[in-house]
Design a protein around this nucleic acid. Structure first.
Lengths: 344, 344
DNA sequence: GTTAGCACTCAGTTCATTGGAGTGCTAACA
DNA sequence: TGTTAGCACTCCAATGAACTGAGTGCTAAC
């Protein structure tokens, strides 16, 4: 479904104008705006065609045209095609370095929101088949131990275990040694019944504690939607766009952002959607898997932190968002995050 | 500034009616609603008095009266006085037990929001002069160590330390032993220069690592507003109250909830405000330390987790919130949280 | 194929009108 | 002296008519 040159130019002009104003675009505007030197009447004819083809639509008779989801889609695809692999040459964003991952994420998401004037979100890196690098049990008090699990990418999780039996230092040391030898380098998927049996056998008298420990490990390592850390920022930016800010829509959207499980679902589905070439994905209106976002567009990018460890950054805005700017922003950020995390 | 009986009755009637309707209350309504058997004219006279005293006000001439901040304050104080220490006999809320503190908090805050139809918030327990119970350094990779700090109340924090020197297992063991002996039972305030000097002396060759470790400990233990975990829920409930839901106010409020630092400030100030008898505090309109909440009321309660370890639960709603219900809710929850956490 | 012209449509704004809720004040009443 | 009825007045909110202006579709001419 390709368009001949002139129609495409007009469609682009309509979309670009609409992106800026948010108001339906009339034929006269286009007639003046483009350098096609066509009268408004001609434009009207073309517009009628474009409407028939489903790229634009009229909110009501005697109003201008606005892009349809399909129109946006064409526009975005065109955009991507044009700027193939162009190096994002934006001024680099100032990200203060800190060793707390959480802080970096919060900072980034805030920055992105204020930079784009849209709502932004970011997920912490998920342990997509991440390997255990270090594991340690320590006795904290009489019947409590803490299990610390460090995985590739230096993600630390800990978990308290209530113990029935009292272990002495010597036994704990032995247990630790064993756990590390057996579990080191394994992913959660690698821990199967065989491994468990082996561990229990080696643990001997303390085999019941192994169950607890493995539970803790699983708990710590699990990639679960409700476990996924998601930060959002600039939720209130949606009030800047009238088409989203009437109170029922705004309320719905903000709930979605606050609850986070819908976002988690979204992120999960983008992951499985496969990362194409650049890893930047655009969901326009109904293309989004989350119903409450049907009036929005969502642009996501994936950043990497190591093999298989990746997180998602996303922008949520009105369908008439400045896709070009947003994609550039994400590309830059993607690069920066990659470098920041990989350096550490 | 006490009120004679009849004026008080009328004021209460005005407030109660306004709490329900949100509309200015007229004299006729009161005349019918109360069992005082007074005509609307009489009520009008009394209302004029009440207005002069500053308990109620008129949005404009020829409108009914609405309570002023001062009116609410009187009402709330009265409420508190009446129900002295009445055992909250609400049906206990269903809190599913889980060993993850974070999950409990999220669940509680969600529950509270849906139960009250207001916005709710909760902070994780803060380490108010909390004692170190256990500390451990472990080598994770060649030049990285992880410091795990457990404090009273079983709050675990960890921190990665980049090391220059490479320590062997033996040295780490020694270091750990020393750290635990010296630091165990101390609060962050107790760690003064003397303690530090002592540690460094004992550490000998590895004295430079002590600085890093202490930084990590400080980082881990610090009670800091931007470090404070705050969960909110039901932000969109504000759309249920017209007086808060016009888009500029709503936007401001939601930003405040999203950013969380203002909330943190709030919580901090409630902490210092002293915990009175029940630990429940009410901030009406301008009484709130946070400017963006001047159109709201905030009710907070403190729950305890151990000596000095406490968190805050709060409800944010319109000034005409159902104070009685909210306070009851908080009281119940407070009791439940106390028992849940103390049992574990 | 392009353009000028014209009749038509429709959302949004302005403006005056109206209704109703509520007040303040005064005069009468117990 | 406190209470009440009555009345004139005020002001908001809703209603609806009239108007404006942007934009269209269609037709006929270029």
């Amino acid at each position: 479904m390709d368009l001949e040159g002139r129609k495409l130019t007009i469609l682009k002009a309509i979309i670009q104008t609409y992106l800026q104003t948010g108001e339906p675009v009339g034929s006269r505007t286009i007639s003046k705006y483009t350098d096609l030197n066509l009268s408004s009447a001609t434009i009207r004819n073309e517009m009628a065609d474009l409407e028939e083809m489903g790229f634009i639509l009229q909110p009501h008779t005697s109003a201008g045209r606005i892009p349809s989801d399909r129109g946006y889609r064409l526009y975005v695809d065109q955009l991507v095609a044009e700027k193939t692999q162009e190096v994002a040459n934006m001024n680099t964003l100032m990200i203060e370095k800190t060793n707390r991952m959480e802080k970096v994420l919060k900072q980034v998401v805030k920055l992105l929101a204020s930079n784009t004037n849209y709502t932004s979100m970011i997920t912490g890196p998920a342990f997509h088949g991440n390997k255990i690098k270090f594991i340690q049990l320590s006795r904290v008090s009489e019947n409590q131990m803490v299990a610390v699990v460090v995985t590739e990418g230096n993600i630390i999780k800990n978990h308290i275990i209530e113990t029935q039996q009292d272990l002495d230092e010597q036994q704990i040391l032995k247990l630790n040694l064993m756990l590390n030898t057996v579990l080191n380098g394994l992913t959660i998927d690698d821990i199967n019944l065989g491994v468990i049996a082996k561990l229990k056998e080696q643990a001997g008298v303390h085999s019941d504690i192994i169950t607890d420990v493995l539970d803790a490990v699983a708990e710590a390592i699990r990639t679960d939607e409700d476990e996924m850390e998601i930060y959002t920022s600039g939720a209130t930016n949606i009030f800047k766009y009238p088409e989203l800010s009437d109170s029922s829509k705004a309320s719905e959207l903000i709930s979605t952002l606050e609850e986070k499980d819908a976002l988690a679902e979204f992120v999960k589905s983008t992951m499985t959607n496969g990362g194409e070439n650049t890893g930047i994905q655009v969901y326009i209106g109904n293309e989004s898997p989350v119903q409450t976002m049907r009036d929005c567009s969502v642009v996501t990018a994936t950043y990497e932190l190591g093999e298989g460890v990746q997180g998602t950054i996303g922008i949520i805005g009105p369908k008439r968002m400045d896709y070009e700017k947003v994609m550039d922003n994400l590309k830059t950020l993607q690069a920066q995050l990659d470098s920041i995390f990989k350096k550490e």
